[in-house]
Design a protein around this nucleic acid. Structure first.
Length: 491
RNA sequence: GGCGGCGUAGCCAAGUGGCUAAGGCGACGGUCUGCAAAACCGUUAUUCCCCGGUUCGAAUCCGGGCGCCGCCUCCA
């Protein structure tokens, strides 16, 4: 069974068969580098990162391109406001992008091209379009002649006549038709500019993606992705100009992720209600954000709230705790080969089935929501096995767990969560907490010692008092057969 | 006006013709514990917005209704 993907152009799930067997050419629209990334950018990046990871896990050789738009109106305006150059601004925001993406575990693409580094390719493409009659120069600008491309509207399912009726006609219009869009813009005084056959200017927004995707991936891509809002006009225009230039299908599968809403309202830069990745990471673990973004199907809207993210973080913790205990069992010195309990045997068997089901889930239009369900079913089963081991330790548990852990790690690899060393993850959280509370490890340790003494003397009131005191500082004690351990309260 | 999506437990969320309607968070009961915490076990949707229809059989398909949302403009 091949992978099924929902393609926006067909508006249904279709079998995914790449152009060249075993190879996937994938392009995802990156950011316009003029401001910090918000949670919507995070969703797009994380979703396509999971898709990228999955395709690789599935054995494809994936060529993945994610671009940076480093020249456009918004960048020019913002740079002017800040009194810096557009290059400085773009570079700063690209650095910020990497900071956010690294925290979220988003892998680097094979190529990460920038528009300003491909002016030559852009000009060449525009020249081709002019030669073929699909574009025209007008007062230093170059426009794409939309009506020269009959299939225009095919992707976004828009009727060209209705679009024309609704388009506003600007005064002093240089276009032949209001629907035509700019491929090249003549530069105004003081703006960044590049020489071209039509005078000094800069590329329009849509043309860079066509030029760069075709440079690195060829005339036909397998997957082109981005947020739902890019379908029109951005992707429609990309498709039109690319196909007009090459006469070939530009993209075989168009994938679009749904929006992030905040309290049910659409979030966007223009509405000003956006929340940055940086702000969220000040409060929550980046992995919790990543898991949250993957916990719903990528095409559905996803509503953000701090409460929802806290729930996800709680669940993530449960996962790391289970992994930590699993690790302890694997390194424990048991030698006896006592038989597994029936409960443990069943749990291990079910655990062994999870990987196959995970592939089924991801094959079905990258259903990461179902995949996260399987991940947590796995966590519960792992804990079940751990409980049974504690009752009657046996070497057989170690062997059983080792065998099952590989399949489990396939899931966490692709989702990009639960990958850290559990002990280190827990320690990291403790360090952060101690620092923010302004207390030292010694303080906690000596309080625990004092409490242990009280417990030995059966001075329960005193012992409970110490526990309550630590609890107020967000530290939770756990009395185990191996002594008292402590953990940090979540969020 | 045109196009599209959604409505599943207290909340979030999979499932789109037939296995016990995944999973998470929360709540309650139990095991463990001096008491807790963590973890596990059990309970928490006889039913999937409402009304009709198709079918041996529907949360899933069709028709109608109600409610919510998105796109059609720069935007992940």
């Amino acid at each position: 069974m091949p992978i099924q993907v929902y393609s926006s152009k067909e508006r249904k799930k279709v079998p995914f068969v790449p152009l060249e067997e075993g190879k996937v050419r994938m392009y995802v629209c990156g950011i316009t580098a003029y401001d910090r990334c918000h949670i919507g950018h995070a969703r797009s990046a994380v979703v396509f990162d999971a898709i990228y990871r999955y395709l690789r896990k599935r054995g494809f050789d994936v060529l993945f391109v994610r671009n940076f738009t480093d020249i456009d109106d918004k960048i020019i305006n913002r740079a002017r406001e800040e009194g810096i150059s557009t290059q400085e601004l773009a570079q700063r925001e690209i650095d910020n992008f990497y900071k956010d993406m690294d925290a979220l575990g988003v892998l680097r693409a094979t190529y990460e091209p920038r528009a300003t580094e491909h002016i030559g390719e852009i000009i060449e493409l525009i020249e081709t379009l002019i030669e073929k009659g699909h574009a025209y120069e007008s007062g230093g600008d170059v426009y794409f002649r939309v009506r020269s491309f009959p299939k225009y509207g095919e992707l976004s399912h828009r009727n060209i006549d209705e679009l024309r009726a609704g388009a506003r006609i600007e005064v002093g219009e240089k276009k032949e038709d209001p629907l035509d869009f700019a491929l090249w813009k003549a530069s105004k005084p003081g703006e960044p500019k590049w020489p071209s056959p039509w005078g000094e200017g800069r590329p329009g927004w849509h043309i860079e993606c066509s030029a760069m995707s075709m440079k690195y991936l060829g005339k036909t891509l397998d997957i082109h992705g981005g947020g739902l809002d890019l379908i029109f006009p951005h992707h429609e225009n990309e498709k039109a100009q690319s196909e007009a230039a090459t006469g070939k299908t530009f993209v075989r599968y168009w994938l679009h992720n749904g929006f992030v809403t905040i309290s049910g309202e659409k979030m966007s830069k223009s509405l000003g209600n956006f929340i940055t990745i940086e702000a969220i990471l000040g409060e929550f673990h980046p992995e919790a954000l990543r898991l949250f973004l993957l916990s719903k199907h990528y095409r559905s809207p996803l509503d953000y709230s701090p409460e929802a993210l806290k729930e996800t973080e709680t669940a993530l913790w449960r996962g790391y705790r289970a992994l930590y205990e699993t690790q302890e069992i694997l390194s424990s010195p048991v030698k006896k080969r006592r038989p597994l309990t029936g409960v443990a045997e069943e749990a291990l068997e079910r655990l062994g089935e999870l990987e196959d089901e995970f592939f089924q889930a991801m094959d079905d239009d990258f259903n990461t929501a179902r995949a996260t369900g399987l991940l947590f079913e796995g966590i519960r089963l792992l804990n079940t096995v751990i409980e049974e081991f504690k009752k009657r330790p046996s070497l057989l548990y170690k062997e059983g767990l080792k065998g099952v852990l590989e399949g489990f790690s396939t899931i966490s690899d692709v989702l990009g969560v639960l990958l850290k060393d559990p002990a280190a993850f827990i320690e990291e959280k403790k360090e952060m907490h101690l620092r923010s509370m302004g207390i030292t490890r010694d303080f906690v340790d000596s309080a625990i010692e004092e409490r242990d003494a009280a417990r030995k003397a059966k001075e329960w009131e005193k012992a409970d008092g110490i526990r309550a005191m630590l609890r107020e500082k967000g530290i939770i004690l756990m009395d185990t057969p191996q002594g008292t351990k402590w953990e940090v309260e979540i969020a």
